[in-house]
Write a protein that binds this DNA or RNA. Structure first.
Lengths: 238, 238
DNA sequence: AGACTGTGTAAAGGTTTAGTAAAGGTTATT
DNA sequence: AATAACCTTTACTAAACCTTTACACAGTCT
């Protein structure tokens, strides 16, 4: 994992030095500015992963820096201040800060809050990628091919249109090809409900799938196992 | 803008009532649980935008709930507690909480912190989308061309005017052409919100895009995959 | 064989989902 | 403040889909 870069904007040189040391020791790269103006410039020039922003400073105070950064600025900001005043906190947060910590604070708490913010960003990023990333999308057994990315099915190269339920049912059978799948398992996995005594839905779906494959197959791929369930035959058994 | 859903887990009935009222008044939908166990179940069953979690509770305390949610849980958590102890704060934050607020707190500060967390998530989402778009300024598939630099669209050479949302939606589909994009993914990526049960926005946008392309296309480029999503067809499939 | 049970299958009925037009509401612009 | 552009919601329609029903047939047991 590459090191995260932090921009510290604080006119308190003593505190700044302490923080730079501590955070560096914790695996961050810290850049330091001692007034709002300089901080703002740095923020524009470099891309930081996080900004630590003091409120009371010469030239530009923390709130002004926050405003100048603009509503659309992407770098998260954690504000630090000597005042524990609620109005200040609220003002900071509403101006776009991600967190607000009152001085004096424990450096461990600061660290924990920094990590929390960075972790959140990473989580959201992950989430976004995962939503668009499809798991392995090809399943091919016994001349039948499934492509999950497009939810398409083909038999000996011929495209076959299946409904959502039929597709799920076939997928289930193919994922466990060569093994008997009980009807109640199918009902729960595919239809999302317990199998009721006179429920014939599954039989009908199986029938529909078979009918759609019929023109393209010489042998039956889905075999009925009386009073046990259905089974997708592998090449050897077929 | 649709309302954000918050799960409040706190055994202090009096406080809970106050918070529910206040947050509802501020435009949130709040669900309430009075012990850790119930809260955890709710968190698993529904998708919330944020969880407010008290620490001291019967059955399961806040830390235990946090652990049970797991490291990969996606919903942000803001912890509330009577103890202002630093160790507690650090513990909570390290266990995956996004923020930690000590009781008693000003409801305005709570609100500001809630908003800060939600805003950060939305910002990161936006950023992701934009980052994707700026990678390549030209995207050309199946006779449809996008030029991100000037945000223009053409079909067989004919310019087409799309709104911002339509453009983003089309971009998303084209970037993942040949793959199904689920409606809830579209909603999160393009509209920046979770898909609600009766939300028809996406269908309408898709309809509008199709209508604008209609005069210039012989075949449909965007295919509906019932109960799964939409897919931008590649040349071969079209 | 006869009874019983489980399955194949066609068709009817009911439910869910998507297409679409129009109204309502929001935001940005003039 | 008025206007325009846009997004969302609503309501209706059509289509796709799932389940139920009914009956025929096949396997199993006595």
């Amino acid at each position: 994992m590459n090191k995260k870069q932090i921009l510290l904007i604080d006119d308190d040189h003593e505190l700044a030095e302490l923080l730079v040391d501590y955070l560096a020791q914790q695996g961050f790269i810290v850049q330091c500015c001692f007034d709002g103006q300089a901080g703002l410039e740095q923020a524009y020039n470099h891309k930081f992963d996080l900004i630590l922003l003091d409120v009371m400073m010469p030239k530009l105070n923390g709130f002004e820096v926050l405003k100048a950064l603009g509503k659309e600025h992407k770098t998260p900001v954690l504000m630090l201040t000597a005042k524990g005043d609620h109005h200040d906190k609220i003002k900071g947060l509403e101006l776009g800060a991600d967190d607000y910590l009152a001085k004096p604070f424990h450096h461990q708490e600061l660290l924990a809050r920094i990590k929390a913010i960075l972790r959140r960003i990473q989580l959201v990023n992950q989430q976004n990628r995962q939503a668009l990333q499809h798991q392995d999308t090809l399943l091919s057994i016994n001349n039948i091919k499934l492509n999950h990315a497009v939810r398409s099915v083909s038999c000996h190269g011929n495209d076959i249109e299946l409904t959502g339920t039929e597709y799920q049912l076939l997928t289930l059978l193919m994922e466990h090809h060569g093994k008997i799948i009980a009807k109640d398992t199918i009902s729960e996995q595919v239809l999302g409900r317990k199998l009721s005594p006179f429920d014939r839905s599954i039989d009908v779906h199986i029938g529909n799938i078979r009918r759609k494959f019929l023109p393209f197959c010489t042998v039956e791929k889905i075999k009925t196992v009386r009073s046990a369930g259905y089974i997708f035959l592998t090449g050897e058994n077929a």
